[in-house]
Design a protein around this nucleic acid. Structure first.
Lengths: 241, 241
DNA sequence: CGTCAGGTTGACGCGGGTCAAAATGAGTGG
DNA sequence: CCACTCATTTTGACCCGCGTCAACCTGACG
């Protein structure tokens, strides 16, 4: 059930059998949630964190004008709100983009983990630091890349993150999002997302249609997007955490 | 020496005398670094983290065209690179904006802290989660606020963060940055930063001159910038961490 | 075969980038 | 105290990427 989560962790650090058991023991039950439903509401008191098992979720904030901006996407194997464990309330909401299933990790169990398993604590600390690195990349993208490069960079990132958990290959991957959703991630209007996708398609770089991403020419796409996945920290760790 | 750091921590969570001592024991020595010098280089192997005691520092990334984008500012009392403790290398560089002094916390001491002080570990985990919240705010700002609102939001945030450590009051605060620096934080050209500052000044909202920020009308500025400091988590914690 | 969400395209306007030049001011040496 | 330099700030003219508005198309589903 949480195998993708373990795969994700092990892509960066070794996890022993005993540690694996401690991780499995974090979770009480699983829940299925419908597409578009809210998983966590901004400012709500939190007593547990959610591990995304299947589907796509996003963290988003509302702006004054009623629009919303997505600050991060979660893929299977990611905690959607591990940061909620120490923050106790979130500065954003979390919603399901597609139908999702999540596993519930009560904060008292996470707390017990921090008391008894310092190494796993560092590992999960790393995990939220990785989230922050992804946030930084998004900020750099928004500040410095034009719409085409920004969009390319997002698709490349999602490809890498999904590949890690076996949900993408060289050909591409499924991404059950609409162009409106993409716009909220990219800080673009749906209309302009459409134009950007057309341009990427016509350049032969990539295609996004009916929830399917095809990376037609990853090398050129990387160059065009000025994208380097170093911030995903996917190299094997050279030293113990 | 690290009093501002303790003040910052205590603004959000209680810290006992014993814990304070454990924190003091993290640091070996202090260093003075000149304005514009690099504190940490992207991808360098890290063996220690730096606590900013005095001055202003920033994390920045280079873009293909040679420009750079600042992803976060550090104020006295902040660790500039606590996330480096678990990441072991950074996806960005860190440089001093003004002359700064930093205290050095070797990673082996931080590691020992995680082994012996679970509560302090959670507290520092919180601290990097707070960094991430600030990153999210920056991304939302870049995606959804125009140049004037974005600039206002940045000055309001810096005001709050500096106020926490006693470096700002109702009148304003010192911020030793140039308009070029501001542009790198805001994703704007220096030319446009200048126009924005003029507009804020002419509206009677705030003034920024020669490294001094005056918040002339904070309430109206907050409204104009659609800014709410909730993401800084400055309310007293309602439950133990 | 009607409805509705999502996708597509075109015309037009504006916020902020670009380019260029001048003003200001802090520091430095004579 | 002045002359000179160099970073920084300021302003104006012009341009372009992306937003806005509006219309139409497509396909899934009842």
């Amino acid at each position: 059930m949480i195998d993708r989560h373990l795969t994700r962790l092990r892509a960066r650090h070794p996890v022993s059998a005993a540690e694996e058991q401690a991780i499995r023991d974090l979770f009480t039950d699983t829940r299925a949630v419908r597409a578009r439903a809210t998983l966590v509401r901004e400012d709500e008191r939190l007593t547990h964190s959610l591990l995304l098992l299947d589907g796509l979720a996003c963290r988003y904030r509302h702006l004054k004008d009623g629009s919303r901006h997505a600050v991060e996407l979660s893929v299977p194997g990611d905690f959607t709100d591990l940061h909620g464990f120490s923050l106790k309330r979130l500065d954003h909401s979390i919603s399901a983009i597609s139908d999702v299933t999540v596993a519930v990790a009560p904060h008292e169990r996470l707390r017990a983990l921090t008391e008894e398993h310092p190494r796993l604590t560092r590992l999960y600390w790393f995990s939220t630091n990785l989230d922050a690195a992804i946030h930084r990349e998004r900020a750099v993208s928004l500040a410095g890349r034009d719409a085409v490069a920004r969009t390319g960079a997002l698709f490349l990132e999602m490809g890498e993150r999904l590949r890690v958990v076996g949900l993408a290959n060289a050909a591409g991957y499924d991404l059950p999002m609409t162009q409106v959703d993409l716009g909220e991630c990219l800080g673009l209007t749906p209309v302009h997302v459409n134009r950007v996708l057309r341009s990427l398609r016509e350049e032969g770089l990539m295609r996004f249609q009916r929830g399917r991403v095809e990376l037609l020419d990853p090398a050129r796409l990387r160059a065009a997007a000025d994208w380097d996945g170093g911030y995903l920290y996917l190299e094997p760790a050279r030293e113990p955490i």
